[in-house]
Structures are given as structure tokens and as C-alpha cells.
Nucleic acid binder design. Sequence first.
DNA 1: CTGTTGTGGATAATTGTTATCCGTAAATAT
DNA 2: ATATTTACGGATAACAATTATCCACAACAG
Lengths: 162, 162
Amino acid sequence: MKNNPHNVDSAGSRLARMVERLKETDHRITPQRLAILQVLATSDGHPSAEDIYRQLVDHYPTMSPATVYKTLNLLKSQGEVLELEFSDLANRYDGRKPYPHPHVICTACGAVVDPAFQGLEEITARVVAETGFQIHTHRLDFFGICPSCRQQSVSTAKPEKG
Amino acid sequence: MKNNPHNVDSAGSRLARMVERLKETDHRITPQRLAILQVLATSDGHPSAEDIYRQLVDHYPTMSPATVYKTLNLLKSQGEVLELEFSDLANRYDGRKPYPHPHVICTACGAVVDPAFQGLEEITARVVAETGFQIHTHRLDFFGICPSCRQQSVSTAKPEKG
DNA sequence: CTGTTGTGGATAATTGTTATCCGTAAATAT
DNA sequence: ATATTTACGGATAACAATTATCCACAACAG
């Protein structure tokens, strides 16, 4: 199990792994960093940098957005967090499954969820064969409306005249 | 053929389609707009807004980046151009295949190419069944190094000592 | 011809993120 | 312990792609 990168690790093992990785590379485990790691290891909602900051600033009054960004970039460079980039809204971060996997994104409320479906390996191989690219990573996003937002739009919609 | 949205139309028919669409919706076909449409209909390299602007400013000295953005957003709202968003670099636009399709992106030179591979329909259906989302669109990107950049990095790399 | 609307272009504003700078805390050596 | 070096955190400024604002002007309607 430990050697299967495509299983979701428990929050505890993810945290331990990230801490270990920082230690190995001679980075200090400061209170601020540890707090950010904990949020990443326990969040399944793909938080933004601002989400992380707001979640921590009450308990760590000196926490700064810059520190959150710095830590996220550090983890990113070590492959310990997956960054989902968006041009029109804040990037989201996944510290629990820091490897490429599909996402389903609600364009109404911004929720990001992981479908169980895996396996773009075969498709990736086809693309490699066809284009000659050396593929390093990929990204597969589905955009739509989540069940909760769908429910709300139904209940707030104008009646259909009947 | 005309009814198959997943075929690449000729540049001419794409241009005609976009012009027709603007007319239908009571938009004027100004020289600036027509020029932008022509670039979009003939480019297969997924240009950025700045690419389009630079390509036109010599022939249309009054062309402004703002006009390019406005026209792109107008076409986007009509579903006549596909926007590929990037958070760390400029967005790219595809006016020839304005429907979701995979892209292969070179992280060295920024080239964006379309692989022949199609068909995320089955996967999309699976995601809908599992998540309950109402899926409107999707995006599938592969990131890597294109053959040309790979060649360059080989020829400029230090010899391996042997 | 006159009033109304739509458009283009210059410019300012926006926003998430990054760079810069400096005081300070931590690690190491002495 | 003390001195020295390094990394770090936090405040602030800078950045860049895109959008909003504003106004002059062209096209169109009456």
C-alpha cells in the first residue's frame, strides 16, 4: 500500500510524509509551516491559499499570506502538493493526492471534488505515441453544477407559468 | 459533415460562421472585428490575445489590446471560440475547434497542439453517474516537452562523461 | 438632420501571486 | 554560553494578464 502512489493516504501519514520530506531536504519545521501542512493534510476540499490563511490566522495571529504562498511553492517543488491553476479565480491545492487525477468543479459555488475514476494511463500512452511529446503530467477537469447548487437553482427559479 | 461539430471546419467556413453569428445577434462587423476573426479562423497554433494583437497592429495601427479582449469575450459568449486558461501565462484561444478537446502543451516553448484522439464521452458519462454533477464542459491537457525542444535540450546538454 | 446606440481605443483599476527587504529566530561553531 | 551564519516570517511593493471605465466617433433610425 505504501508503494502505491494512487491510494489516498490517511491525513496522518500525509502529514508525516510531508514533514519527513522537509527534514530530508534541510528545511525547518516551523510552527507556521506545520500548521499549513496540517491544513493540507486534513482538507479534502481543495483549499485556496486564502482559505488556508483564513483558517489559520485566528490561531496564528502573525500568519501572513506570503508565508502560505511560500510554503505551498516549497511543497509544490517537492511534489507534495498538487496545484490546480485557474486564471480567473484563486488556485486550489490538494495535499492529500499530490499526483494528477481528475477533478469535478462546480462553476456556481467553486466546489472541487475527486471522482473515483482513475486511469488516463492508456490515453496518455496514445498521446505520447502520436505527438512525440515527452509527457510529464496532465490535467483533467470537468466543469458543471453540483447537486447542491442544482437544487438551489430549482427552488429559486421562477415558476413555469403553470 | 456540416452537422458534425467534431470535425475541423475549413478556415473559410469558420470565418463565415463567426460572421453570420455576429450578424444574427445584431453585432456590427467592423474592420477590427473582422481582422480578429480572420486570425482566429486561420491560426492552428492557439494564439494568445497578445499574439493576435501583435499580428494585426502593423496592418491596423489603431488596433488596441482592449479590442482584442472584447472581441474574444464576445465570441466566447457565443461559443465560437474556446478559451484555454492558464494562471501563470496568457490564455490561449482556439477559433477553429471551439468545443472541448484535448491539448498537448509544451512547457518549454508554450506550443499547444491538438492530438487526434477524441472521445471523453464515456468517461464524462461515468463522472456524471458518480458525482451527480450536471457537466457542461471539460478540459484535458497533457503537459510535456515537444520533440523540437527535446532535440534542443539534447544538443545543448553536457556530455555524460563517457 | 438629429438623436440614439454601439464600438474602439486610451487609460485606470483589479486581483492573485511573486519579489524585495529587513528584523529575528534557529542552527552551528568556537 | 557566545559569536556567527543561515534560514525564515512578515510587511510591503511590484507584477502581469485581464477587465472596467470613460469618451470621442461612426453607424443607424426616425
